[in-house]
């Protein structure tokens, strides 16, 4: 497991040398193609929840997944790091690739995959441990740090990146659950980025937060995307418009339309997208 984790930075260093395949299709603001889902179908028992979803997610950018409740956007997001595996009755078909590698291939270990594709959940869910332990948990789990000094460094950097360091540096030993909701969510982000994931999935990260905490998180997302590929599920179209470069609109388990955010909100091709973004339903 350790060897695999250590391979990663090397793989990432190589990437600039590879010519951008999608350079023509995607605007210059986007990084190279990171994840690609092809013909993804998903069933919960007998009920089909996703129908032939095809979506590309690009590095160094934010892809927003929007759509009315129950449209399958969260379900799709959870396919990207195989979090659906833990649901017994859930069955996924299709092809999802991370940097060209099929993540549902039998030789792929979902545990390692989740270290590369981190996740932040709807409700802030820090462990009932200290702030320090919350962030140090994943690096320790994957054996990323040789000693305490390195671990301290990782914890500090992660908290700085998550914009929480100044607020908690004097009370790292206090329980993470004692923080405010917005701080807890940033702690969860710090925890997710502590292992340097390549992709960060965010499942409605601001839906439980007040507007000020939401603004902080949105600024944070903007900063994080410089080095990360981010996919965010959101109910707020304003949020999608503010933070994302590309937006995908889901409806009834189908991906209706995906394009640059500005295009989706100003000049969508599909009538359903038009109706949704203008607030006619959803």
């Amino acid at each position: 497991m350790e060897a695999k984790v250590e391979d990663r930075p090397a793989a990432r260093v190589e990437t600039p040398a590879v010519p951008k395949e999608s350079g023509d299709a995607a605007p210059a603001a986007l990084g190279e193609l990171k994840m690609k889902a092809k013909d993804v179908n998903l069933w919960y028992g007998q009920k089909q929840a996703l129908f032939d979803v095809n979506l590309e997610i690009f590095d160094q950018s934010v892809t927003a997944l929007i759509g009315p409740s129950g449209c399958g956007k969260s379900t799709f997001l959870r396919c990207l790091n195989r979090m659906n595996d833990v649901i017994d009755i859930c069955r996924v078909e299709g092809d999802i690739r991370l940097e060209g590698q099929d993540i549902y291939a039998p030789q792929v270990d979902p545990v390692q995959l989740r270290a590369r594709v981190g996740m932040v959940f709807q409700k802030p869910n820090p462990f009932p441990k200290s702030i320090y332990e919350n962030v140090a948990y994943a690096p320790r789990l994957h054996g990323l740090c040789a000693n305490k000094t390195e671990l301290d460094e990782v914890v500090e950097t992660s908290l700085i990146k998550a914009g929480l360091w100044e607020e908690v540096k004097d009370r790292l030993d206090q329980p993470g659950t004692g923080l405010s909701g917005g701080q807890q969510q940033r702690l969860c982000i710090a925890r997710a980025i502590s292992v340097n994931p390549e992709v960060l999935l965010m499942d409605e990260p601001c839906s439980a937060l007040d507007p000020i905490a939401t603004a902080t998180i949105e600024t944070l997302i903007d900063e994080l995307k410089e080095n990360l590929c981010i996919a965010i599920v959101t109910h707020s179209m304003q949020q999608a418009a503010r933070v994302s470069q590309r937006t995908a609109f889901f409806h009834l388990g189908k991906l209706v339309e995906v394009d640059e955010t500005s295009t989706i909100f100003t000049n969508p091709t599909d009538q359903r997208t038009q109706d949704y973004v203008t607030g006619r339903f959803g």
């Binding site: 932040v120 959940f121 869910n125 820090p126 462990f127 009932p128 994943a138 997710a192």
Partner: peptide
């Protein structure tokens, strides 16, 4: 045990056994 704690642990790449042992 709240499901959110399970998701959190699995989400950062804990294996099933680590999830059980640590949380």
């Amino acid at each position: 045990v709240p499901p959110s704690i399970r998701e959190a642990a699995l989400g950062v790449g804990a294996s099933k056994m680590q999830l059980i042992g640590h949380h």
